[in-house]
Design a protein around this nucleic acid. Structure first.
Length: 496
RNA sequence: GCCAAGGUGGCAGAGUCUGGCCGAACGCGUCCGCCUGCAGAGCGGAUCAUCGCCGGUUCAAAUCCGGCCCUUGGCUCCA
């Protein structure tokens, strides 16, 4: 059973075979650090992260590179806003640090390297020079454009035909281009005031002079174009040919199309073997986006829901489909996650109880356990079908609960294996943190001791028949975010 | 206008590549029962789908083919 993926390049599901046996070169099209990341960005990260984790689980050595675009007009437009910073690199630094914080908060596997445009300008210039030398690019007024007519395969990713592309760009730029679809590899000078104004907050003073960083180049002072960076950085840190290139569906054209054109024109090699595109997160009928302002930042979402709920939310839809964000959807994700985590804890508790026996074999339970692993693996290998894989885990949850409910003597081996399956598949592959809230690592916190104390008092009230008083105590604890559940073995609690 | 992705129960969302195990998964919701002092959780059961529309191929179609309608994304910065 091998992995197959849907490749945008061919439009088909293909068996995945990396160029080098056990190594996967994974490039994730990163973020322009001109604002805080929102849940749409996090969706891409979460899916790329699960792909990374699954590939590693299957024994591949994953070389994951993900860029930060820290040279951009939108960044320049925020100079002087709030306390973001007084120049382009300071503003970029401000948002980059937030993005890194968000990525940690989301429990993402670290990439091998997070290259920034500002530290790769020489690589970009080299690439542009190569393209000019090979006749795929031309200089015009100090700017350099890629000549789309020179690259025969232009449009192969997005199925666009050159004569059908509507190109709108600014007037001066259009006059510099030979073909309307030609795109900038290098732009002369600093950012023009009118280009800044387009993205600048209305309350801020307008910019009078050209601004933003510039670099020396064979064509004079200037700035790199947007599309080249990904080609230059991925080829610098990985290779001329990538195995997997992941990005948002909104970038298929022109960004990814242009990456292919400039990379393949420069090297003569295929740029990326498998193009995987993540569907967009929708809110109330539109895509969530910075420019539409209809977003929830990653930071706020993590505060509001917690990592595991956010990740479970993403795990309930296949990466290539669109997904709708809303209160209802998040509530459901919370229910799913809690069901899973409770089952995990039930399995751990049952394992540790004196009712767990080495010889108490429950064949039905063991069968369900085996089925979980098979179903999970088949689902993940089927184009990373995370929802189907999640279904397998939820069915294991049902099997655990049923076993504990129905039996007086627990099947120790099967419970132990269930705990391991949750930790390996749900923990390592899905990045979920089972048992995190009541994790008993031997240290007892003061909070835990106090909760136990209150519960002892409550039990005494219950024994005395003072249920009103007992319910008040339960309500008070729940108001503090501590969930109480009574059972035959006494009350249990979780910090929510 | 052109390109792409979709339209599956009250909601959400797999399955479509590789037609039959789909009399349609997993979950949320709602209802009933068990358990419980109550609640929650859990368990059991129930409710809920002519798979956008029309036509075709086939012994057999949610799945393949043709036409049409609608939604979203892209063609300008965008994950």
């Amino acid at each position: 059973m091998t992995l197959s993926v849907t490749n945008t390049l061919t439009g088909e599901r293909e068996e995945f075979e990396p160029r080098n046996d056990d190594e996967v070169l994974l490039y994730v099209c990163g973020l322009t650090v001109s604002d805080d990341a929102h849940l749409g960005h996090a969706r891409l990260w979460a899916h790329a992260d699960v792909m990374h984790r699954w590939l590693e689980h299957e024994g591949y050595d994953v070389r994951h590179v993900e860029n930060f675009t820290d040279v951009n007009e939108k960044i320049v437009a925020r100079i002087g806003e709030d306390d973001f910073g007084g120049d382009e690199s300071e503003v970029a630094e401000h948002f980059t640090s937030h993005v890194i914080r968000d990525m940690r908060g989301l429990n993402l596997k670290r990439a091998e390297v997070y290259p920034r445009v500002s530290e790769h300008v020489p690589d970009i210039i080299d690439l542009v020079e190569t393209l000019v030398e090979r006749g795929y690019a031309y200089e015009s007024n100090g700017s350099v454009y890629f000549d789309v007519t020179a690259f025969e395969d232009y449009g192969k990713l997005s199925n666009q035909r050159l004569d059908e592309i509507e190109t709108q760009g600014p007037e001066d730029e259009r006059s510099e281009k030979r073909h309307p679809a030609d795109f900038a590899l290098w732009k002369a000078g600093a950012v023009a005031p009118e280009d800044v104004a387009e993205h600048r907050h209305a309350d801020l003073p307008a910019v009078e002079d050209p601004c933003g960083q510039t670099w020396e180049s064979p064509w004079g002072e200037g700035r790199p174009g947007w599309h080249v960076e990904c080609s230059a950085m991925s080829m610098t840190h990985l290779d001329d040919t990538l195995d997997i290139h992941v990005g948002g569906r909104d970038l298929v054209f022109p960004h990814h199309e242009n990456e292919i054109a400039q990379s393949e024109a420069a090297t003569g090699q295929q740029f990326a073997r498998y193009w995987l595109h993540v569907g967009l997160l929708q809110t109330a009928g539109d895509k969530m986006s910075s420019s539409l302002g209809n977003f929830l930042t990653v930071d706020d979402a993590l505060d509001q829901y917690g990592v595991d709920v956010v990740r479970t939310f993403y795990l309930s839809t296949a990466y290539r489909s669109e997904q709708t964000f809303g209160e209802k959807e998040m509530r459901e994700a919370e229910e799913r996650w809690e069901r899973l985590d409770r089952a995990y804890e039930a399995a751990v508790d049952a394992c540790d109880s004196t009712d767990a026996y080495a010889k108490a074999e429950d064949e039905t339970f063991r069968g369900a356990l085996a089925e979980t692993r098979t179903q999970f693996r088949e689902a993940m290998n089927d184009d990373f079908n995370v929802r189907e894989a999640m279904a397998a885990l939820l069915e294991l949850a049902t099997a655990v609960n049923r076993h504990v409910d129905d039996h007086d003597a627990y099947d120790y081996w099967a419970l132990r294996e269930s705990v391991e399956a949750f930790e390996e598949l749900g923990g390592d592959v899905f990045g979920l943190s089972f048992g995190a809230v009541t994790d008993d690592d031997g240290t007892v916190t003061l909070a835990e001791e106090l909760v136990e104390l209150v519960l002892d008092v409550r039990e005494a009230e219950r024994d005395a028949g003072n249920y009103e008083r007992a319910d008040d105590l339960r309500d008070d604890l729940e108001a503090l975010g501590i969930e109480i559940q009574d059972s035959d073995d006494g009350p249990t609690y979780r910090f929510g």
